[in-house]
Design a protein around this nucleic acid. Structure first.
Lengths: 221, 221
DNA sequence: GTGCGAGCTATACGTAGGTTTGGGCCGTAG
DNA sequence: CTACGGCCCAAACCTACGTATAGCTCGCAC
């Protein structure tokens, strides 16, 4: 890999902090703070504005004033959740109350800071938020390959997979699906190839990661 | 089962609300509230008092004033966490602030209510907390049997189990441990019996539930 | 129609998994 | 010392798994 490519990849993986605040001086102050520790920053002045931007492809977090023109911070949080965007959120507030705090935290906010915000508190919160996002993205990515391979299975292969991963023997799978045992064996081999599973244990873990329901073979108490 | 036994079992599985508040009138009011909807209640006047009591064996939750004589509600929360007691907590406060709220919620509190507390809010919170505890207990119990069976394995059997669950073939396990393949087979049979696993898929799920590390055989991206 | 892929099966053969029977060595509790 | 259990192995035998080769039907796209 060239130095240039390395650089491009490094900057692409660099975390970014998204700021939403209608107060320009606040945006400037936060931007400076984050840039001073080497974080990339993008600032918005309203909820509508950031909803139009595309979700970031790198570990990131939102720093959100709870009081915003138009949609409030809490509304934005709810909208993002509905849009299946899980960027961690840090709230800042001048005149927040406890019910508001509870609602934000219950909805998964990383932190809820009151003005005046101490720089170190903000940096700690952002650090934690980005770390959380990184973990979420890693987990997401680790199953995305498995999921796409699963999509490549035929209907019948999925039937067989579900039963094999449930712990049934080939002959039992065959009986369950009204097939000959040999047919199950052949499908099973195709499944192992298509899913790139090196062992049955692998396959079982993949199906669990995909949330494929088991027809038989539950854990005992 | 006799009617008497049924009654005894029903009452044993009935959820209970634990109240900690130094204000006797508050204790009375909460006790009445919960009993009015058929919940069992136990009331304490300090953190020290409830720490002496044994953790409840049924789904339960704590209703905790944040300001208590001696240990504060937040301290009690921390102590319970350290003692590995995960009863869900609902805080009530007269003069709480936001940082306190954030800290409590980050530490896993179910809710944080401000006085005067609306009855319905409190009942909703308790409902949610008890439901959470019930789920936690169910999950806990479902692996406790597996765990105790794992404890019954010999050291060598655990070695073999770890490698087998990693997806290695018997001969590979044997090579890894410096054994003959036949020996691995025999251990493997003993493991299946002792763990009451009906299939390899079962065994793999058990090891994952127990958090046993894999030496080989990771998922691909 | 022709080709193609999904779905299904059979025969045959080689490998992996699993049990039984029987036996060896070692440390420790009684 | 003896008994017991963990640990280790072997021969024999059976079952389950997996693949290769070959062939069938059906529906669909070109």
């Amino acid at each position: 890999m060239t130095d240039h490519a390395k650089q491009a990849q490094a900057s692409a993986a660099d975390p970014i902090v998204l700021i939403v605040d209608d107060d320009p001086s606040m945006r400037r102050a936060l931007t400076n703070l984050f840039q001073s520790v080497g974080l990339k920053v993008e600032a918005f002045s309203s909820a509508a504005e950031i909803m139009e931007a595309k979700p970031p492809a790198v570990p990131s977090c939102l720093v959100l004033d709870i009081r915003l023109p138009g949609l409030s911070g809490l509304d934005l949080q709810a909208d993002l959740a509905k849009a299946n965007i899980h960027t961690p959120i840090i709230f800042i507030t001048g005149h927040g109350d406890i019910p508001m705090t509870v609602r934000a935290m219950k909805s998964g906010a990383v932190d809820f800071l009151t003005k005046p915000v101490r720089d170190q508190d903000m940096l700690d919160a952002v650090q934690a938020a980005i770390e959380r996002d990184r973990k979420r993205r890693d987990a997401e990515q680790s199953i995305s390959g498995v999921r796409s391979r699963y999509e490549g299975l035929t209907a019948r292969e999925r039937d067989v997979l579900a039963l094999v991963a449930s712990g049934l023997m080939n002959k039992q799978v065959a009986a369950e699906l009204g097939l000959a045992e040999i047919t199950v064996k052949i499908y099973r081999g195709q499944i192992m190839r298509k899913m790139a599973a090196k062992s049955l244990a692998d396959l079982v873990r993949m199906t669990d990661a995909l949330g494929i329901p088991r027809n038989r073979g539950h854990l005992q108490t």
